[in-house]
Amino acid sequence: MDRYIRQTALNQVSEEDQETIRSKKVLIIGLGGLGGLTSSLLARAGVGHLTLIDTDKVELSNLHRLFELNEEDLGKSKAEATARKLRKINQETKIDVHNENFNVDNGERLVQEADVVIDGTDNLLTRFLINKVSVKRNTPWVYGACVGTVGTSFTFVPKKTPCLSCMIPKKPICTPECEEVGIMNTVPPVVSSHQVTQAIKLMMGKETLKKLFYFDLWKNKFQLVTVNKKEDCPICGNETED
């Protein structure tokens, strides 16, 4: 356990907790600026099993925020290139790779096999699917998103917190995208760090933040926003705590 000695030295993480983290399986959907760093943090923290899913290839414009990848990975599968780096970071972490999109055909099986799901996607359509499947399979998931100098995160725990559809009831047709308005490369690490901290707390069975974390790094504004569960939510409205 020498590898994790600085982690288990924390008051918050015991050696038993570290063993618990090692026994967990995390699904990371999307391996861009968020998912790439998220997967690295989880492997370094000693999560036993990671499942990576992304269909994209590494492009030059990705490298300013894909911290584990470099020029030799250009043109290669993001999921496979990330997995190669992770295996060099921590051989004890088992890595599964899926070179495909998260979709209705594979989603339920992948979520069902995971203890925690982490969102590294770049679109709301996939996030609404993650939400629907996670509520159905009773699996917690950690939403994260960023654009420009703004980032946000929320930890969704079925039966305990609102779901994404409670928070965003109508699917927006158009939201600002990184391709259009850009992304400051210091923003995804803040979101990823928040997501991973929440995921580790979930794995350890600790209480997670029940508010929306929203920040603008450029303006030095950090907010926690109360989000309420909607009783008439079409996705989680009938789900109640056991």
């Binding site: 968020l34 994260g144 960023c146 703004v150 946000t152 939201t175 995208e177 990184c178 992304i183």
Partner: peptide, 24 residues
Amino acid sequence: ELVTEDEELKEGDELDIKEVVSGG
């Protein structure tokens, strides 16, 4: 507190409007 669009307003309320963030 995050509210839906049909929430009633009253004198002195503070409404903070933020864009839905979808990038990653």
